[in-house]
């Protein structure tokens, strides 16, 4: 191929780096969303997150603490469709609709906090280990091994035993357990990416290690972390619901796991609604983020195998 004659048509003069980057971002998002299941996942996420954000306008917040279930002692265990209680109430008079909507807020808070904290720690530790290598890598990876050997459920129970059952402790327990995965992914990626000639090219230019990391290594290693973080937005809610189901959250919290737990006794008595609706929410939340995560992976990171 000749190098000069095959140049694509001249671009217009107002072309700029910003426009090109923006267009590339648009093209990538377009490709992600062209897959109907991914789009479906995103739609569910938008609805659920919308519910979480708009909760105070959808259902009047409970006073004084909006994240606690309101109790209507006059309408205990009423079925869905009852006046004032669209999805029925629990056997302690908690409005299921309130739990479903405010539970979305709790779940969003849980997954956002845990994912942000764990990604930050994991990326920092993994990058340091992978980029520096040597003794530091050795030490950090042994620490990671220690954390990997902690069973998350038992660890969460231990935290609850020591610090008392509360939603905050669930966040803490999950954060302590989940960062390790990101550290490992990031380390492997960084070690792979730093072997590219463009890293050596930047070293030959004389750019600083920090700039090389920031410009060359990090952007080219972060994709699997983004994919994993998306999947974990769903997984964490699943694990969080499990933990609150077994009683690690405060009783009466507007949280899906707590509600499922509260309603389970009634299922055998035909009062299916108190567990089913919040259970369905957990399911949809996890499903939606998994669909989106897989879709992102297919486009950005086609080499990684799908689970």
């Amino acid at each position: 191929m000749s190098t000069t004659s095959t140049s694509p048509p001249l671009t217009t003069s107002h072309e700029s780096a910003f426009r090109v980057r923006l267009r590339r971002m648009g093209e990538t998002s377009g490709r992600v969303l062209s897959n109907p299941t991914t789009l479906g996942g995103l739609v569910i996420i938008v609805v659920m997150v919308g519910m979480a954000v708009l909760a105070p306008w959808l259902v009047e917040p409970n006073t004084p603490n909006a994240s606690q279930m309101p109790r209507d002692w006059g309408a205990i265990a009423v079925p869905p469709g009852s006046p004032g209680h669209l999805l029925g109430t629990t056997n302690t008079g908690g409005d299921v609709l309130y739990g479903v909507i405010w539970g979305a807020r709790t779940s969003l808070r849980l997954s956002l906090i845990v994912v942000t904290v764990t990604v930050a720690i994991g990326v920092a530790v993994g990058s340091l280990a992978g980029f520096r290598g040597g003794r530091l890598d050795e030490i950090l990876m042994r620490i990671v091994d220690v954390f990997l050997s902690i069973p998350e459920l038992i660890f969460a129970l231990a935290i609850a035993a020591v610090l008392g059952p509360s939603f905050r402790n669930i966040i803490l327990a999950l954060a302590i357990v989940f960062w390790v995965k990101y550290a490992r992914i990031m380390r492997a990626q960084v070690m792979h990416v730093k072997q590219n000639d463009y890293v050596d090219a930047s070293r030959v230019i004389g750019d600083s290690s920090w700039n090389i990391f920031r410009k060359d290594v990090l952007p080219n290693s972060i994709t699997p972390v983004v994919v994993q973080a998306t999947l974990d937005m769903g997984n964490i809610v699943l694990v969080g619901a499990t933990l609150s189901f077994i009683g690690l959250a405060e009783a009466g919290l507007a949280e899906w796991g707590v509600l499922v737990s509260e309603g389970q006794a009634g299922i055998s008595g035909g009062r299916w609604w108190a567990s089913t609706f919040p259970g369905l929410m957990v399911f949809l939340w996890a499903l939606a983020f998994n669909l989106l995560g897989d879709g992102i992976r297919d486009v950005l990171d086609p080499k990684t195998e799908t689970r």
Partner: peptide, 22 residues
């Protein structure tokens, strides 16, 4: 450092895929 530069064999690997030519 300024005065010693290098051109690598593999032109795929030697250019950061996320950077523009500029």
């Amino acid at each position: 450092r300024r005065n010693t530069q290098m051109v690598f064999q593999d032109s795929f690997s030697s250019l950061n895929p996320r950077h523009l030519v500029s």
